[in-house]
Design a protein around this nucleic acid. Structure first.
Length: 112
DNA sequence: CCGTTGACCATAA
DNA sequence: CTTATGGCCAACG
């Protein structure tokens, strides 16, 4: 097979994203942008969110992925956002009153 | 093929 | 703290 060029691997992008998300241990969180960089697509944070929204493997801890503000991207107060926060709290992640987490403390990996 | 959308990010006000 | 704007790129209709 010599001709694989850009289009064929729709899965590859998803696979790399899932792998990056899977690398985040329990009790820690990561951001879409950071996952994108780990997956090899720096700057394409939207694709991470889109990939998770589209379809997520069972082994992928999607709830550990939040935005760079330390807040849940899903609508907090709505069902999904509530579930995500509950899952994180069950892993030991503490939310502030404003609904954000201390990225400096929980983000993984801690890159300067 | 084109326009719109979206679980984002950075900067500005 | 919030709101607005521009950029980025794959998937959808």
């Amino acid at each position: 097979m010599g001709n694989s060029r850009r289009s064929n691997q729709r899965s590859e992008l998803y696979s790399k994203i899932y792998a990056a998300v899977r690398s985040v241990p329990a009790g820690r969180v990561s951001t879409y942008g950071r996952i994108a960089s780990l997956a090899g697509y720096p700057g394409q944070a939207r694709l991470v969110g889109y990939a998770l929204h589209r379809g997520v493997d069972d082994a992928v801890p999607w709830h550990r992925v939040i935005n760079y503000k330390g807040r849940i991207s899903l609508d907090t107060g709505a069902m999904a956002g509530n579930i995500q926060q509950a899952l994180l709290e069950s892993e030991g992640v503490v939310f502030s009153e404003n609904g954000a987490v201390d990225l400096d403390k929980y983000v993984y990996p801690e890159i300067s």
